[in-house]
Amino acid sequence: MDGLIAVGDSKDRGVGAFAFPPDAWGIFIEGVKNDLVQGLARGQDTSSRSNRTAF
């Protein structure tokens, strides 16, 4: 599993983690950033939990 990025739930470490190739993780992060920027451009409060998308 060398080179993969592990992502887990810090509040429930017992469930383990998902491992992603760096390119897939990068695409996900760019999508999150783009959603944040678009929300800011529309004047949305992006800090609210109600505005977050579940993946």
Rank of each mutant, 00 (worst) to 15 (best):
L4M: 15
S48A: 13
G8H: 03
K33Y: 12
I5H: 04
D35N: 12
V37W: 11
F18A: 15
G14I: 06
D45M: 10
A19W: 00
F55N: 04
Q38C: 09
G14A: 12
D35E: 12
P21Y: 12
I5G: 00
N51E: 13
D23M: 10
M1D: 13
A24C: 03
G8Y: 01
D2A: 15
L4K: 04
K33L: 11
A17D: 05
E30R: 15
G31M: 03
V15Y: 02
I5D: 01
F18C: 11
A19S: 11
L40S: 09
R52V: 08
S48T: 09
V7Q: 01
E30Q: 15
R42A: 05
G14C: 03
R52P: 09
P22M: 06
G8M: 06
G3Y: 08
I5E: 02
V32D: 03
G3E: 13
G14D: 13
S50I: 07
F28Q: 02
L4A: 05
W25P: 08
K11N: 14
D45R: 06
G16V: 05
G39A: 04
T53W: 05
G26D: 13
D9L: 14
R13H: 09
P22W: 05
L4T: 03
R42N: 06
T53V: 11
I5W: 01
I29Q: 05
S47D: 14
D9E: 04
P21L: 12
I29L: 15
S47K: 12
T46W: 00
S48V: 00
M1S: 15
V37Q: 07
V32T: 05
F20R: 03
I5F: 04
R49G: 11
D23P: 00
F18N: 12
M1L: 14
L4Y: 07
I29E: 10
T53H: 07
D35S: 08
L36S: 09
V37T: 13
D23S: 15
P22C: 08
F20E: 09
G16K: 02
Q38G: 02
I27T: 11
Q38T: 02
L36W: 03
A24F: 09
A54V: 13
R42H: 01
V15E: 00
L4I: 10
S50N: 01
D35Y: 10
G26M: 05
I27W: 07
A19K: 02
D35A: 14
S48N: 08
T53R: 08
A41T: 06
Q44V: 14
D9K: 13
T46L: 03
